[in-house]
Design a protein around this nucleic acid. Structure first.
Lengths: 181, 181
DNA sequence: ATACGCATGTAAACAGTTACATGATTAA
DNA sequence: TTAATCATGTAACTGTTTACATGCGTAT
């Protein structure tokens, strides 16, 4: 389980509300981790109970009050310990791959179409990532360990999407060979 | 949720026990989906209750009895419907990427070492996949839609591991630049 | 002796999704 | 007036992991 640690990492770099955290999962970090707002609020409650974060009620005009969460010294300690623990092998859940094995049950063009939809999503994400990459070092100014690490994770996201697209095209071509066969 | 469908796909291609299914998750399919034996038995129970699979008790000598599960007509129908439903975007949970963003909290060489461990795992998996790929079409004899799809998923697994390794080396090199800095 | 492979399960805890619920402001 | 953005939550359900539990055969 690491939603806990993901939230701590985000709060370590910048304090914010549950809503702010949810938005970050929709951005570039969303390529590697995500969570619904319900889950985030729930997790923030637990982190608060465990003393890893604190919060301040901030009244606003024209908007609902907000709870700005901040990481505590104990939270940073927890993060440091976590960083030293072994990295668990990631669990993959690839729906598409499971379908690949069962394509013979339906018209191959069904999968062809579904691939098309996924590729469109993928293309869109790729555009966003590339735009972000192009201005990355200008934006944050100067190379540091931290910025280079974030840059490398961004590059990884781009490579993943690109290799995905190349592969999907190959699958589509193969499916076309078997059309009406 | 698709453990349900993954199990149905496996049983559609070949009847077998919960134990057999668990083994398949440790093989090439394990690159795209996995589940513990506890979860598999639980899911088989539900599939049975819903009439999507049936089973026969098979006594064995020197080994415990086994329950051989078989997909039903209703199970195949369920699979077909599932194949026509839209593919959900996959949820990624990449622990390593989260750590990348927080490297500045610890000695960079900690991550360097952890990457080394992951790369070793990755190398091992790659070797297995490549061996399987080399003899794939000889083994199953002849190209069909189904065999080509399985082959493409195998190739995808190989590409993923390879791109992963290339990227990890780059991260390690970057971490070395910042050693003692 | 010890461990590994075969074979199946229960129970408790934890993680994550979906549905429901509220309510103000602002832009099309 | 319809939808989006800001902002927070509860409740029920489903999915997943971890711990516990059994027991024979075979190989080292």
């Amino acid at each position: 389980m690491s939603l806990k640690h993901t939230i701590l990492v985000l709060l370590e770099s910048e304090s914010g509300t549950g809503y702010d955290i949810a938005k970050k999962f929709q951005g570039s970090l969303g390529n590697f981790w995500s969570a619904s707002h319900q889950q985030i609020y729930h997790e923030l409650g637990k982190l608060d109970k465990d003393g890893l974060v604190t919060w301040k009620q901030v009244p606003q005009e024209g908007k609902p009050d907000k709870k700005v969460y901040e990481i505590t010294a104990s939270g940073i300690e927890e993060l440091r310990n976590w960083m030293h623990s072994p990295i668990p092998s990631q669990k993959v859940r690839d729906h598409l791959m499971v379908r690949m094995v069962a394509t013979h049950l339906v018209d191959p063009m069904v999968l062809h179409e579904q691939l098309g939809e996924i590729m469109a999503r993928c293309d869109k994400k790729l555009t966003t990532l590339k735009q972000f990459e192009a201005t990355f070092f200008d934006m944050i100014g100067g190379k540091t360990l931290q910025s280079e690490m974030i840059y490398l994770s961004l590059k990884r996201g781009i490579e993943l999407q690109e290799s995905w697209l190349r592969w999907a095209e190959e699958v589509q071509a193969t499916l076309e060979k078997y059309r009406d066969a």
